[in-house]
């Protein structure tokens, strides 16, 4: 303590150094963000009277959610849920199978430029558009029904899996690749022996994860007529049958939770 008090230190101020050092940029960003927020919030129309009425309806909704009605439209629910599940299975399998060639084609270290660009554009389109938007296109092509939904989810799966697969492949150890190529193996053999062993475990893990996502999405593509439980759900809302809607929602939640538990278990086992 002696030395601290003996020489009376000339007081040196200290402030926490700001996150962004350039003051112009810092204040500019802050003021810009505040202005954006103010404009954005003021651009949201809020109809007080409508909300007041809605709250009363919300109350009814909550009370009917507490006593869900599984019975009165059980047949529709059953068909919808079964359709959602089958769509999930088929689309995941098809999507994963197709994503392997696309993913290989989108890896810069494996293919020539034209193939690379083609596969990358498939991935970009699939990832940019929300599933429902893609479903609209497939409904136009195939008509209403679960086939459009399957194609939608499979297409979305391709984008999701192929991107991650391609990134994995671009990061693989190049040494085995050269070693296998040096044995005189062709492209396909190189891929089987040098690439797939390095990425296959993660591929399985991702497929299981994507299964979860597909199940969740299969509940909504029905809103544009692409099959599954979604159309039934929308109908119940339009008819104010909130107790039936509650039953459907509960089924969805339980299904999603179950598959998530199972898939989490599988993925842990794989690691």
């Amino acid at each position: 303590m002696a030395e601290l008090t003996a020489s009376p230190v000339t007081s040196r101020r200290w402030r926490k150094p700001p996150l962004i050092r350039n003051p112009w940029l810092r204040w500019g960003l802050l003021i810009g963000a505040l202005i954006y927020l103010a404009v954005a919030i003021s651009s949201v129309p809020v109809d007080d009277a409508r909300i007041a009425r809605g709250l009363e309806r919300g109350g009814r909704m909550i009370s009917s959610f507490l006593r869900p009605d599984f019975a009165s439209r059980w047949y529709d629910i059953q068909i919808g849920v079964l359709e959602s599940l089958t769509m999930t299975v088929v689309s995941t399998v098809a999507g994963v199978l197709l994503s392997v060639p696309v993913g290989l084609g989108a890896a810069r270290n494996l293919v020539s430029a034209p193939i690379y660009l083609a596969c990358r554009s498939i991935i970009t389109i699939s990832r940019t558009f929300q599933e429902v938007v893609i479903a609209i296109v497939f409904v136009v092509m195939f008509g209403f029904g679960p086939l459009a939904g399957v194609c939608t989810l499979a297409f979305a799966t391709i984008g999701f899996m192929a991107k991650l697969l391609a990134e994995d492949i671009e990061e693989i150890d190049p040494a085995p690749l050269e070693a296998i190529r040096a044995t005189g193996a062709g492209w396909l053999k190189t891929v089987t022996y040098a690439v797939m062993p390095q990425v296959s475990a993660r591929l399985v893990g991702l497929s299981v994860y994507r299964f979860d996502i597909n199940l969740r999405e299969s509940a909504i593509v029905g809103i544009v007529g692409a099959g599954g439980i979604g159309s039934t759900l929308q109908t119940t809302f339009n008819r104010y049958d909130y107790d039936v809607a509650a039953a459907i929602l509960l089924i969805i939640i339980v299904l999603v939770m179950t598959t998530e538990l199972v898939s989490g278990h599988i993925r842990r086992r794989l690691q």
Binding site: E3, L4, V9, S11, R12, R13, W14, R15, K16
Partner: peptide, 18 residues
Amino acid sequence: FRRFPQHDVDQAFALLER
């Protein structure tokens, strides 16, 4: 707000020097 009394800050500088 990281507004410690100046006395604490002085002491911190002295200790860091030590």
